[in-house]
Computed example of a mutant assay.
Amino acid sequence: MLTFVGLGLYDLGDISVKGLNYVKNADAVFLEAYTSRLMGTDVPGMEAFFGAEIRVLAREDVEEDPHEILDRAAEGRVAFLTGGDPMVSTTHADLRMRAAAAGIETSIIHASSISSAVCGLSGLQNYRFGKSCSVPFPAKGWFPTAPVETVTANLALSLHTLVYLDIQKDRYMRVPEAIAILEEMAEKRGVEPPALYVGIARAGSEHPVVRAGTGAKLKETEFGPPLHILVVPAELHPMERDYLEIFAGL
């Protein structure tokens, strides 16, 4: 049995009671640590909380060589932990399909997700979001512009864009960096950069930071520690504008 267990947004208090009970009674516990991370705890803290040893997985462990996960799930109860909600990431959907192909029973225990938390924190209406995108750290000889193309296409349809920021082993992209990269992408593509952004830091914590404004304004804003996420809003509904003025300093 392979059960995908969402951990929620920020710390150990975000997991559901159902998820907690499953993890405590699992025969093996794996933690996927490359799509998102809980910044309000760490692996030793999780092991103490769950009373279980946790095997931390890199991307290649899940996408290229998941035999250890599947072998253990064929024999007993396996908890596959993820930040946020488990099935927001396509890499997890792929693992579930591999398990099904191997005749392994699967299930999902959902949790809070950044995709819904952003709406609550920003006041941007969830049905007005278009395709999301991710901004990676540029590398030598590699500077993709697909993210700004997604943003531009959404804006043409009056849709907001949720922009995920790169997470690497030893660094986390922050809102000011992401805006600077998007502006450079816009310049390379010969399009106007977005006029308005909403930056959010540490969603799910007791004191998240939510700020709205121009690129120039948010690049000078101190958002504090990660994780950060960015939204490029389309034309605002009056209620969205009022919400951002009250809660995000627009």
Rank of each mutant, 00 (worst) to 15 (best):
D170V: 14
F143V: 03
R96D: 03
T221K: 04
I200E: 02
H228E: 03
T106A: 05
L70K: 01
E220W: 08
N25Y: 07
L20G: 02
S115Y: 15
I181M: 04
F143R: 08
S132W: 11
K169D: 13
A180F: 09
S116M: 15
A186G: 00
D27C: 05
P176V: 00
A195T: 09
V231Q: 08
G224Q: 01
A33P: 06
G103M: 05
G51L: 05
K24A: 09
G199N: 02
L244V: 06
G19D: 01
V198M: 03
A101G: 11
R174A: 14
G8H: 00
T91A: 12
Y22W: 13
E60G: 10
L121K: 06
A212I: 03
F137Y: 13
N21M: 13
E75N: 13
A58K: 14
D65G: 12
P193R: 04
L9H: 01
R77Y: 08
Y34C: 02
V5C: 00
A101Q: 13
L159C: 10
A28S: 15
P176D: 00
I167D: 03
S113D: 06
L162T: 07
L81H: 01
S113N: 07
L182G: 02
G130C: 07
R189D: 09
M173R: 04
H110Y: 15
R241C: 10
V23W: 04
A52G: 11
M39D: 14
S122N: 02
A195S: 14
R211D: 07
N25W: 10
V43W: 02
Q168T: 15
R96F: 05
I246K: 14
L196K: 10
Y22F: 15
